[in-house]
Write a protein that binds this DNA or RNA. Sequence first.
DNA 1: TAATAAAGCTAATAACTTTTAGCTTTATTA
DNA 2: TAATAAAGCTAAAAGTTATTAGCTTTATTA
Lengths: 196, 196
Amino acid sequence: MSTKDRILEEALTLFAEKGYDGTGVDQIAEAVGIKAPSLYKHFKGKEDILNTIIDSAEVRYDEYFGSDRNIGRLPGNKEQFVQMAMKKVSFTMHDPMIQKIRKFLVQEQFRSERLAEITTRHQLDGIQRMYTRIIEGMMNEGWFKKDDPVLLATELTAPVVLLISKADRQPQCEKEILESIEKHIRHFCEVYMKGV
Amino acid sequence: MSTKDRILEEALTLFAEKGYDGTGVDQIAEAVGIKAPSLYKHFKGKEDILNTIIDSAEVRYDEYFGSDRNIGRLPGNKEQFVQMAMKKVSFTMHDPMIQKIRKFLVQEQFRSERLAEITTRHQLDGIQRMYTRIIEGMMNEGWFKKDDPVLLATELTAPVVLLISKADRQPQCEKEILESIEKHIRHFCEVYMKGV
DNA sequence: TAATAAAGCTAATAACTTTTAGCTTTATTA
DNA sequence: TAATAAAGCTAAAAGTTATTAGCTTTATTA
């Protein structure tokens, strides 16, 4: 990996852990294994690093949540739906890059309008749109009761998002959190899916 | 109001807006109308101000959400439930102190274990416990279908919490957000309350 | 291989931040 | 009202941080 990319990676790691203002350029440099002034061979300054991270966070996000590719085959029954949802939860929770972007955004969301918008896209719109499609599809195939798919996606995803962000700040609670999430998803299925 | 209290107030305002690391002691002093060194007549240092704010945030929070007093009379029908919930939403969203504490916490949640715990209490446990009681009460009186009140409280509050935090960072979307919240609450009632 | 460009380093600058020292004004109270 | 304490101020210390300048090493390529 190029030095430039390693700078971005280590900077994101540090920004996620200590925030942008809480991270010094020398800490970034040290994590990369170079001296601070060498950073300026690759970036105009600290803010340039920040902006580049934001750019690549947008790209990275679209890769995961923007395309329909991630939906794959629609689940064919309740259990499959739960399994699919839990798999996505586990992935989102543990993928290092996604986790860092999430922790970074939550801390820097007030820094600019752009960051506010991106945070909303990550935390609400993106996941919601993805599940709206899934639920809509399964509704058409008769798995879900007729209802507003957007609303159902909200009901499904909001508790998951909140619990994942709890796991970000209190990783020692992860086990209990995963149980809560599964319980919530199963309850969601009981309420909104057809059948007994 | 004493200078000490005004320091705490202005510091919280600034921390909510620009984060702890993004706020200088001179900015706090200027907001209060004194010079930076005078702060040290009231606090040992910047971190002392931070810790005092955290202490008072805990107290403040318990006042609002800790006691049962806030529950008041249980709503006597669907419309009353919606009205009560929306009133609480509107209050939480707009009360300046609560909003500042919320914005402050979301940015500083990774600074310490204590802040992580407080954030979870504010964002999840507190509101959830409050609504668990309300829903439990109304369930006993036959307004809600028999179900797990804790789970129902989660389903009700999570989308509200997420949408309020969206309003914090994108206040220009407030109207649309309030509509979404009301729509969600009404849907919640349709699904979980008895009767047509 | 020689020339050139890229990427690193050290040293230093400049700006900023928090905090202390010491003095002055304001308020309290005996 | 005189004495004392509290709260403010200016000046400056001490430390940190981002950035620049200029030199050296490493890599590229002609």
